[in-house]
Simulated assay, not measured.
Amino acid sequence: MVAVQEQPSCDFTLIIDGSETVITEGVFKSRDGIAKITSPGNLQVSRFRSIHVRGNNTGSVSFDRCTSICVEGVREISITRCKQAQIEQSGNILINSCKELKVNGAGDLRVTRCKFTHLVSCGNVMINRCKMLTVDWTGSVCVTRCKTAQLSRCGGVRIDRCRSADVFSCSNVSVLRGKVNYVSEMQGEQVVMGVKVNYASELPEQQVAMGEKVNNASELPEQQFEMGVKVVE
Rank of each mutant, 00 (worst) to 15 (best):
A3W: 03
D11R: 06
F12E: 01
F12D: 01
D17N: 14
G18L: 00
E20N: 10
T21W: 00
E25C: 00
V27H: 02
F28Y: 15
A35H: 01
S39F: 01
L43K: 04
Q44W: 01
S46P: 00
S46F: 05
R47Q: 15
R49N: 15
S50R: 06
H52L: 06
V53P: 10
N56S: 05
N57M: 09
N57R: 08
S60I: 01
I69T: 07
C70Q: 09
E72L: 02
E72W: 01
E72D: 14
G73L: 03
R75T: 06
E76W: 02
C82W: 08
K83Y: 05
E88G: 01
E88A: 03
G91M: 03
G91Q: 03
S97F: 10
A106S: 15
D108C: 07
D108M: 02
L109Q: 10
V111F: 09
R113W: 03
T117V: 15
C122Q: 10
G123D: 08
N124G: 02
N124I: 04
N124M: 07
V125G: 06
R129V: 06
T138G: 12
V141R: 07
C142I: 10
R145W: 06
A149P: 02
A149Q: 07
L151D: 03
R153E: 13
G155M: 12
G156M: 13
I159W: 07
I159F: 12
C162D: 08
R163Q: 14
D166L: 14
C170N: 09
V173Q: 11
L176W: 07
V180Q: 02
N181L: 12
V183I: 13
M186L: 08
M186E: 14
G188N: 03
E189Y: 05
V195F: 02
N198D: 15
Y199M: 02
A200S: 12
S201D: 15
L203N: 11
E205A: 08
E205Q: 11
Q206P: 04
Q207I: 11
V208A: 07
E212I: 13
K213L: 15
S218C: 14
E219R: 05
L220R: 10
P221R: 09
F225E: 04
V229C: 05
V232I: 09
